[in-house]
Computed example of a mutant assay.
Amino acid sequence: MKHTIIVKKLSPRPRDYHSRSQGNSEGGCHFIESTSRPLSESSRSTSNPDEGLDRTVFAKGRGQRREKLHAELSKLGIDPTEIESHPEQFGTAAIRTYNSFLLPKSPGALAVAESPTRPSVVANNISFLQREHNADQERWLINVDRNRSDGVTHQSDNYRHPITIILDNIRSARNVGNILRLAEAARVESVRLCGMTPRPPHPKVLKTAMGAAEYVSLGDDGESISTLKTVLDLKAKGYKVIGVETTRNATMYWDTAVVQGDVNDCSIAYVFGNELIGVDVHVLRECDGIVCLPTYGMKNSLNVATCAGIVVWDRLRQLHQVRN
């Protein structure tokens, strides 16, 4: 016996694209209107519930939720009365978060709102959204990368600082991605990925580099080569090679002397080693010097990407001071 299944396509539920005014109330619950800018779209938390849904169910407990949320906002230094009397100071996103907590739109959202830790989470979200709104209004933050067409330096687009980063068998793709990102921002000559060091197009490298990898020269034909060979090749070209490693004969980085001729005339290459065993001892023997960063706690070394950032930016400081 054959059965026929009829599928009826339902039209999407209409959405309300307007925020509710402060004076309006539905189901015994007040809404706050953000006057900073109109809402351009509606999320699940701000869309109207189905017509047959009894909204009074979700309004129950609103007073207690408001009291708890206001207490958490006060802990963060936010006057909770301001969010209701001057919502324009908080921005649309913060007001939407506030309203959604006080009046959930579904049984699931209500259950989440009633959890003991939720008021603290929502208060922190509102605090962040307020700071984001204020920063956006005042244009205090530069959060967007510059467009390539705008130019990134006052010098030639082909200019690179005379700095090369050598990675000796780094294991972590995320560390490599971070170093490629800082290398692009510092505009170094190249980053040499040696041995087992992962390289683009490794997905974790590219993800952490956040688009910077394509602008960094790797100084090779795409094949991994030994760190020792890289060091010897660079020394033959006149580079000064410095190993960055915690060894007994290492010089504290702050104590390294930098003269004007050294900064202006010499390209420098820094070698950063494997996270577990450091820079290979055969490589260190070929280095022109070994430096380490001072540490004052139980750990005697930093994350390799953090260390690279400190060393490279201090070199940029040296270049800037001498040339200006």
Rank of each mutant, 00 (worst) to 15 (best):
K2D: 10
T4R: 10
I6D: 10
D16T: 11
S25W: 01
E26R: 14
G27P: 03
L39E: 13
S43E: 00
G52R: 12
A59D: 08
A59F: 05
G63Y: 05
R65M: 03
R65N: 06
R66Q: 06
E67Q: 12
K68Y: 07
L69P: 00
G77S: 12
I78C: 00
E82F: 05
I83M: 08
S85C: 05
H86T: 09
H86M: 04
A94Q: 12
P104E: 05
P104S: 10
S106H: 07
P107C: 05
G108L: 06
L110P: 02
S115P: 00
P119D: 07
P119T: 06
P119I: 01
V121L: 09
F128R: 15
E132H: 09
N143Q: 05
R146M: 06
N147G: 04
S156R: 10
D157A: 15
N158Y: 15
Y159R: 13
S172N: 10
V176G: 10
N178T: 14
L180G: 04
L180N: 12
R181Y: 10
R181F: 01
E189P: 03
L193I: 07
M196C: 04
P201C: 03
V205P: 08
A212E: 07
D221Q: 06
S226T: 14
K229S: 13
T230R: 01
V231M: 09
D233C: 00
A236N: 14
V241F: 01
T247L: 15
N249A: 14
N249H: 11
T251C: 11
W254N: 15
Q260C: 07
Q260G: 15
I268F: 00
N274K: 09
N274C: 11
I277H: 14
D280A: 13
V281I: 14
H282P: 05
D288E: 08
G297Y: 00
N300C: 04
S301E: 03
A305E: 04
T306H: 12
V312L: 12
D314W: 12
L316V: 09
R317A: 11
